[in-house]
């Protein structure tokens, strides 16, 4: 089988982290792709919640928007927006929040609001959506982002969603539980170091050197003592993912 592309690699690595029967609050794009890959491989009973109010969605093709009909038709329940955030997320029923962002920093804070100054931004990004509360209220957060020195930065321009704030116990002191458990990129996996809560490299994807990941990161990276090479994607992971994408593309072309 043809070798995995960097995006496929990132998606497969993210999917592997999702346990069967976990309740997962999913953003659109790669988080949605990875959670559905998990559902179609090792985690058939994973519960996917989308912020459009679809609880237990089982889409056969990937949704383009967070509220596609496909999600509602395949869900166990469809609830209103106030209900999805109040009863399901805030009520403590979400194990894993799965988010993307434009920037993530060394303490895993996320920015999806602006690049530059808030009042006169260089780039106005879409904004918070459900992310601040997902990052605050899920028992654990997974972050997925393409690696570059513009996206993995020392300090985000704007904290949309809290990670570990200034590091150490700052998050706990602010009164938040949970927090990001991993930042998954197309080059490797970073995890918060115990105590300091600074992101350190735990995994490098096959063929990625320490120099290469450092070059694509906006701060001086540290590597975990147990840094390992990511296991190659299996043929089955790759074919399920590629079939899912092909199904989606052919449905969208119609």
């Amino acid at each position: 089988m043809k070798e995995a592309t960097p995006t496929e690699m990132m998606t497969i690595v993210a999917a592997r982290r999702l346990k069967n029967r976990a309740t997962c609050f999913v953003g659109i794009g790669i988080p949605s792709m990875a959670s559905n890959l998990a559902r179609l491989t090792h985690a058939p009973e994973i519960v996917l919640i989308y912020e459009s109010g679809t609880v237990g969605a089982k889409p056969t093709i990937l949704p383009l928007s967070i509220g596609d009909g496909e999600l509602a038709e395949t869900a166990d329940a469809v609830v209103s927006t106030p209900e999805i955030f109040a009863y399901w997320l805030q009520g403590g029923r979400v194990d894993i929040g799965f988010l993307g962002a434009a920037q993530v920093d060394r303490f895993a804070n996320l920015n999806s609001t602006v690049i530059g100054d808030y009042a006169s931004p260089k780039v106005r990004l879409p904004g918070a959506g459900g992310a601040p509360e997902i990052a605050a209220l899920a028992k654990e957060t997974l972050v997925i982002i393409k690696h570059s020195s513009r996206s993995l930065v020392d300090r985000v321009d704007f904290i949309t969603s809290a990670g570990y704030l200034d590091g150490g116990d700052a998050r706990q002191k602010a009164g938040l539980r949970g927090g990001p458990s991993a930042v998954i990129t197309d080059l490797g996996v970073l995890v918060p170091e115990e105590g300091a809560n600074e992101l350190v490299v735990e995994q490098l994807h096959p063929g990625v050197s320490r120099e290469r990941i450092q070059e694509a990161t906006g701060w001086e990276l540290r590597f975990s003592d147990t840094v390992s090479e990511t296991e190659e994607p299996t043929d089955s992971e790759l074919s399920v993912l590629r079939n899912l994408i092909a199904r989606t593309e052919s449905a969208r072309a119609r």
């Binding site: 955030f85 109040a86 605050a136 704007f158 969603s161 809290a162 009164g175």
Partner: peptide, 13 residues
């Protein structure tokens, strides 16, 4: 009322 925005920069602006 909600549990939210703790640690976020949005309330600053």
């Amino acid at each position: 009322i909600l549990r939210g925005f703790v640690g976020s920069d949005l309330p600053k602006y």
